[in-house]
């Protein structure tokens, strides 16, 4: 009797703790959403609040009044789509080659990829390589090419492929099918959850990319969304520039602080939208990764 009473209190305590933590996880989102729909003057007077005194869509109207955000959106979508497609292609080809211990030199190949996770040449040599020898500065490829292969994802995908029963493609091989055909018609269709998981890992990394822009991009038309966020965090004039195309007469009415928040909201928007998928595949992929190490 005593025990079950204690257990009840314990459950109440656990509910309270986890619910408070979840609320704290959610609070910054709600605060930023609410503030982004606040009227600029109200925001400056009252500060960032969950329930704004005066609502306004001005910040959202403002960020679509110039090309900065729409351009950055297109850049970011291109990086994410093209990058993820290229990454998945390169990763799945190599993962298939390494899987199933069919190759004599598979362990050496794996070590070759694994070593890049352990030791890096550092930012300076990457910088010199990119600018002096590859001449990728000020092109959209500087976001994509250095990030195409993640060895971590490669090993994760190899582990997925290892789970496919060998007999399944041995029989097709006897029929004379080439490796590419086996990969395309048997392995990949059986690995859709793996492709989704690893595709999401890659896509999220590309969507979040900003450092290449800071180091290599001069042309404002090639800025990614996250780099614009990075710029306007501490430079409020930059936020104002997003909302106005240089006509000084309009400056007075131009929202800047709320524009900053609206920019953040349109940047996380797709992630919130894809959240159910992220949750399903990410968590599934993570469990597989955790079990297999």
């Amino acid at each position: 009797m005593q025990n079950s009473r204690n257990d009840k209190w314990l459950a109440v305590l656990f509910y309270a703790f986890t619910i408070v933590f979840a609320a704290l996880c959610l609070y910054p989102f709600l605060l930023v959403i609410a503030s982004s729909f606040t009227e600029e003057a109200t925001l400056l007077r009252n500060g960032y609040r969950l329930l704004p005194e005066a609502f306004s869509f001005n910040a959202y109207k403002a960020i679509f009044s110039t090309n900065t955000i729409p351009d950055a959106y297109l850049v970011t979508i291109f990086i994410t789509v093209a990058g993820t497609a290229l990454s998945l292609l390169v990763t799945s080809l190599a993962a298939y080659s390494l899987s199933g211990s069919r190759l004599r030199y598979a362990p050496q190949l794996a070590l070759f990829f694994y070593f890049t996770m352990l030791f890096s040449g550092g930012m300076v040599s990457s910088y010199i390589l990119t600018t002096r020898y590859l001449h990728l500065q000020d092109t959209i490829w500087v976001y994509i090419l250095p990030a195409v292969l993640s060895p971590w994802n490669l090993f994760l995908m190899r582990n997925f492929f290892n789970d496919i029963p060998k007999e399944l493609f041995e029989s097709v091989k006897l029929d004379g099918a080439g490796e590419l055909r086996i990969l395309r018609s048997i392995v990949l269709p059986l690995s859709l959850p793996a492709l989704a998981t690893i595709g999401l890992f890659y896509a999220l990394a590309y969507w979040s990319s900003w450092a290449p822009a800071m180091l290599y991009i001069e042309n404002p038309k090639l800025y990614s969304l996250q780099y614009i966020i990075m710029q306007i965090i501490r430079n409020i004039d930059m936020a104002q520039n997003i909302a106005v195309s240089g006509t000084p007469s309009a400056v007075q009415a131009v929202p800047a602080y709320t524009v900053r928040l609206a920019t953040a909201m349109v940047t996380v928007g797709p992630i919130i939208f894809l959240y159910p998928f992220l949750q399903r595949y990410f968590v599934g992929g993570l469990k597989v990764g955790a079990i297999k190490g």
Binding site: L89, V90, T116, G121, G122, V124, L129, L145, L149
Partner: peptide, 16 residues
């Protein structure tokens, strides 16, 4: 392809 990407973007910087 994966080996090439690895060589260019991971191993070449190591020479640096």
């Amino acid at each position: 392809p994966a080996v090439l990407f690895s060589v260019v973007f991971s191993y070449l910087p190591m020479a640096g």
